[in-house]
Design a protein around this nucleic acid. Structure first.
Lengths: 146, 146
DNA sequence: TGCGTCATGTCAGAATTCTGACATATGCTC
DNA sequence: GAGCATATGTCAGAATTCTGACATGACGCA
């Protein structure tokens, strides 16, 4: 039965593409001494400084605990910095250091090249439609669990 | 800058949808006592019996070692069975037990419901185009690392 | 036959991520 | 002010997945 072939479902192909993307990104980031989660973290901070650990975790779709490990490694590497005490509440606003900005800028070029390679078969209009469809799919699933 | 917003890249939205899909599947499968990797394994065996551990691993985009853990748990739960000795080479052809087939059939209904919910906004033609695009994206990335 | 290559299953250990729990800080309601 | 819900950071421990390594069996080729 070709119709119900699991390998031809959107869910399976989604996982396949994501696995390939993760592998390609890891390969591209290795030269910069970064992992994919670390890069995701830097990228979010680059676009929106002062993000807290919990906000970063939500943006990267991992738990606070997992993001905390990533953040500590980045802090130890001198790429991000957090104040010792929270200015309000318990949230610690994180910022890129100068070294972090440099590494991010260099890594971003290679990551964008991966993204372009992945979407090379799509023109601008198709990419727009795809983005909207993916957004709709995420929203449709978010209704029941988060 | 909205144009280069990381949150509006195909890569990010891909990860977002996949995270939502994984959460939805885990939630749906919990009632059947299965995890998503376990279900993926059963589904592949349901469509193609006699698959080896290494083949299942490639199909699920994990290492042989990871799949081996999944397989052992499924074996312990009595849902799959493997011969004690390899009929040829070292590969151990895995099969669903009767209990495995029953669990798979029950779980599949709920998983398909999740897939339908995710793609509810797409008509048949759009879904076909999406599948082809995802396939092309995976192929484009596979060139360098897989 | 003998050798080199490849694929497979498996062991050992580390890295990553998760669940569960707890203390702290804010804001809302009474 | 007192009480409660919510959000955050963090600790502890388990589960999952990975990298590295090794032995075994099949296959191609000299």
């Amino acid at each position: 039965m070709t119709q119900d072939d699991v390998y031809r479902t959107v869910g399976y192909q989604l996982k396949r593409v994501q696995a390939a993307l993760r592998a390609a990104m890891d390969a591209a980031l290795r030269a910069h001494g970064l992992t994919t989660p670390q890069y995701a973290c830097l990228e979010m901070l680059g676009q929106r400084p002062e993000l807290s650990n919990a906000e970063l975790a939500r943006g990267a779709f991992v738990t606070r605990q997992s993001m905390n490990v990533v953040l500590r490694n980045l802090e130890e590497a001198g790429l991000v910095s957090r104040p010792a005490t929270a200015p309000s509440g318990r949230a610690l606003p994180t910022r890129l250091t100068e070294a972090g900005e440099r590494v991010l800028e260099a890594a971003r070029a290679d990551v964008l090249a991966v993204e372009r390679r992945m979407t090379a078969g799509l023109d601008r209009a198709q990419a727009e439609v795809l983005l909207r469809q993916l957004d709709a799919m995420a929203e449709a699933l978010a209704g029941s669990d988060g």
